[in-house]
Design a protein around this nucleic acid. Sequence first.
DNA 1: AACGAGGGTGAGCAAGCGCTTAGATCTTCT
DNA 2: AGAAGATCTAAGCGCTTGCTCACCCTCGTT
Lengths: 208, 208
Amino acid sequence: MSAAEETPGGEDMPWGEVTPEAARRLLVAAVEAFAERGYHATTTRDIAGRAGMSPAALYIHYKTKEELLHRISRIGHDKALEILRAAADGEGTAAERLADAVRSFVRWHAERHTTARVVQYELDALGPEHRAEIVELRRESEAVIRRIINEGVAAGEFAVSDVPGTTVAVLSLCIDVSRWFNTQGRRTADEVGALYADLVLRMAGAQK
Amino acid sequence: MSAAEETPGGEDMPWGEVTPEAARRLLVAAVEAFAERGYHATTTRDIAGRAGMSPAALYIHYKTKEELLHRISRIGHDKALEILRAAADGEGTAAERLADAVRSFVRWHAERHTTARVVQYELDALGPEHRAEIVELRRESEAVIRRIINEGVAAGEFAVSDVPGTTVAVLSLCIDVSRWFNTQGRRTADEVGALYADLVLRMAGAQK
DNA sequence: AACGAGGGTGAGCAAGCGCTTAGATCTTCT
DNA sequence: AGAAGATCTAAGCGCTTGCTCACCCTCGTT
């Protein structure tokens, strides 16, 4: 194990798990480019250029441009699911856990909206088998939220007539944050997270 | 005025305002292609092929591929804004008008989700001046919703602490329907519209 | 019958695309 | 010291892209 595989500044930095440093630089460059222009409008020359490398260097670390997108999408979805599960498996009432899940999920989509935009909106650019893998992760995310809502209804905390429909709406609301949020806007990620947690509790009919 | 400018089957058919029939066929083909694959992944050959024409025919009716996207985006935004205004300027309490606006806005995004997907998610593919024109239309849509919510708060019908934030959330929720809705899903456009109208009233803190 | 105008086509141009290859350079291990 | 392997580059291949151009039809008008 070489020293290059360790992350010097901490172990949960954004793309710390991408191990050769050049591969990480390329991946970060790709995230920026995909978020700005979209996958299809981004050229491999642009990605390599942003990473300060020649176009050919990309193909030492990634087989294709699509593999680069897949890596980004996979890591991003893993992180998003981890965030949801942490909140869902925590302590407290269903209302507290739902608010927690929405707050942290929204905060991630706002703070890391560049990544989230790629992760959430470039799904169709993936090849069929990679796409299927990611779709499965999304189904799991949906299941996490649905479970909390179901538990809240069972406990009499929530008044929801259509649980699957409300689940879709909650996730949809959170995900779309990455589309409109921008860092120099008038709202911080924390503020949006707090507002959305409140709105979602209202949607679930939670009593104050 | 030639007979070709009249719409034989009715006057508010989907793309009735696009006047030479060949231009309309090309535009409809472009909407389908853009919605399926995205603007940048769609080739002019593909559009022309779907319309049953040669690649060169496209350039008789449209200067560039981007102009085609602009026409689609412009007409779509005009329609969306018209729908919102019709509900906002209607009769009834603020709650009734908000529910009406959300119901019809969501129904449009669900029924015409192919168009809506292009209209809502391909904005960045437009050139700077066309983009600015469309962004202005969106600001007007936002103003319509914000006005209803403000009126509801003033009338004591709603309990909303952050009006601009809630406005963004409501619009965001509606727009995102076009991303996940599909026609052979288990929900009809009407059902989603009704569910979302209810959810939005809850977000606004409207009393039953 | 001749005409001009506009919608349509087949062929193709210049540019840019994803990706490959041959070789230079640097690092690591014996 | 020297071989082996990993990393990166310059050059460029084959292909596709958005778009153009010379030409052909099909018209309503004269």
